[in-house]
Amino acid sequence: MEANKPDFQLLNHTADLGMIVRGKDLQDLFVSGAKALVQLMVKPEKPTPMQEVPISVDGQDLTDVFIRWLGEILYLFEGDGLIFHDIMQFKLTDSTWLEAVVFAAPFNPNNDEIIHEIKAVTYHQAYINCTQVGWEARVIFDI
């Protein structure tokens, strides 16, 4: 994998967009998932001044936390007009509580190319598995 590029592949889903995403550890998986989601939504033309944005989510299990985390990254773009770039702090507790601070840059409608309107991150067929080489998750987006 090229450095900083998310490790993911698209799944064939009739109506929506699905992906399998991988990471060497859980933090890497969460960052890769967020970067992959951004890649599906928007192609920023050039780096712009970054903001630090705190994000915290609680879920019932690891998969729930992952879905809610991606939901926060989606809202960051759709609601606040900010594009996730990377992670600054990441603390996952008991697989149910995540506190993070992310770097995000404002979306520039004049320069940044929009790719897809993703309506939501769904729970349908979502999973997170520990593999021999790290972690893997599946998620399907409503588009």
Binding site: D64, E78, K119, A120, T122, Y123, H124, D142
Partner: peptide
């Protein structure tokens, strides 16, 4: 538009926290 997407997302996430009574084959059926 985003108004409806957000409403669905808000309530679906709330309902996933109240699923003890139901045994569902897919969490998206919350």
């Amino acid at each position: 538009r985003g108004f409806g997407h957000q409403i669905c997302d808000d309530f679906l996430k709330e309902m996933t926290r109240h699923m003890e009574k139901f045994s569902l084959p897919d969490r998206q059926l919350a």
